[in-house]
C-alpha cells in the first residue's frame, strides 16, 4: 500500500495549516528532505561556528605572537628605530614620524602628492 502523499505546505506558512497537536511529519520511518528553514538555520549555525573558530584562532595567534612582538620591540629599542616599514616607495611614507609635513609636496612648486601610499598614510597630526 502506498502511503498517502504528505500535504505540501511550503506555500501555506502559518500554523493554521498545521495540526495543533500531533506530529507534523506523520510517517516516522520515511526520510523527509530538510525544510528550507532548517537548511537556513544550519547555514547560519555553521557560520556562527566558523566565527567562533576565528575568535579562537585570533586569541591563540595573538598570544603566540607576543614573544615575537616583544623581540621586535627590543630590536626597535636597540637600534633606535622610530617607524614601521609599511611602505618603501617614498621617504614620507617610510618614516612618517620623522619627515617634514611638506615632504610630499616638495618635488617642485605647486607639486601635489602623487605616491599611492600617501593616500593610506596621511601626514602626522
Amino acid at each position: 500500500m502506498t502511503p498517502p502523499v504528505a500535504q505540501k505546505s511550503a506555500s501555506l506558512p502559518l500554523s493554521y495549516c498545521q495540526p495543533e497537536e500531533g506530529p507534523s511529519r506523520p510517517f516516522p520511518g520515511r526520510v523527509y528532505p530538510l525544510r528550507k528553514a532548517d537548511k537556513f538555520l544550519l547555514f547560519i549555525l555553521s557560520n556562527l561556528l566558523l566565527l567562533a573558530l576565528l575568535f579562537t584562532h585570533a586569541t591563540l595567534r595573538s598570544r603566540s605572537a607576543l614573544p615575537a612582538l616583544q623581540a621586535t620591540a627590543t630590536t626597535v629599542q636597540y637600534l633606535g628605530l622610530s617607524d614601521l616599514c609599511l611602505s618603501t616607495e617614498a621617504a614620507h611614507t617610510r618614516n612618517p614620524c620623522l619627515v617634514d609635513r611638506h615632504a610630499p609636496f616638495q618635488s617642485h612648486p605647486l607639486a601635489l602628492e602623487y605616491f599611492p601610499s600617501g593616500a593610506i598614510l596621511p601626514p602626522p597630526k
Binding site: 502559518l14 500554523s15 528550507k36
Partner: peptide, 13 residues
C-alpha cells in the same frame, strides 16, 4: 517556534 519555522519557510520560498 513551529510558527516561526513555517514563516521562515515561506519567506525563503
Amino acid at each position: 517556534f513551529e510558527k516561526q519555522r513555517n514563516i521562515l519557510d515561506f519567506t525563503l520560498s
